[in-house]
């Protein structure tokens, strides 16, 4: 229990352990962006609607603008920067490129994190399930159709690779 407004937290971000002191009111999103300089997580509204700031906490996608950094203490999180491994993009990231599933790229991190968590839970989704899963993320450029295609195609590719 800590009475003060500053707290030391330790968490694992993209496989790396980080210990920092944070103010209690610092949002998880601002902490990632400003303290850890993981600026791939974007802020589109700061009130929990647009989904651009989505990160994966444990296995679940969550909005980092609606959490405080102090609440990340002891967690394992993944941001968009942690999706590719050793410089190799994930199937989903490649699929976004192939399907032209992004234009300005500002919302993309949130879609990728949301869809990554979703595909883990639902490896063989229908188009309706994909649309439903992505409905908490706003994209102003693409009209969503190529994003849905990219996620469906990634699911097929992952499934085929697993044989």
């Amino acid at each position: 229990m800590n009475v003060s407004t500053r707290h030391e937290i330790t968490l694992t971000v993209n496989g790396k352990t980080e210990t920092r002191t944070v103010e209690s009111r610092t949002t998880a999103a601002d902490f990632l962006r400003d303290d850890l300089r993981l600026t791939g997580t974007h802020l589109g509204c700061e009130h929990g609607v647009c989904g651009a700031c989505t990160i994966i906490v444990g296995e679940a996608s969550m909005r980092s603008c609606l959490m405080f950094a102090v609440q990340l203490d002891g967690t394992t999180i993944t941001t968009v920067e942690g999706l590719a491994q050793n410089g190799k993009m994930t199937v989903l990231q490649e699929s976004f490129r192939e399907h032209h599933a992004l234009q300005c790229g500002f919302c993309t991190a949130g879609f990728l994190t949301t869809a990554t968590a979703f595909l883990k839970e639902t490896p063989d989704p229908t188009a309706d399930e994909v649309r439903e899963a992505l409905s908490g993320n706003i994209c102003r450029c693409t009209g969503y159709i190529p994003i849905v295609e990219a996620v469906l195609d990634a699911a097929r590719t992952i499934k085929a690779a697993k044989g």
Partner: peptide
């Protein structure tokens, strides 16, 4: 796209 899908824009 390479920089946007990796969060490095």
């Amino acid at each position: 796209d390479a920089r946007f899908v990796t969060g490095t824009g």
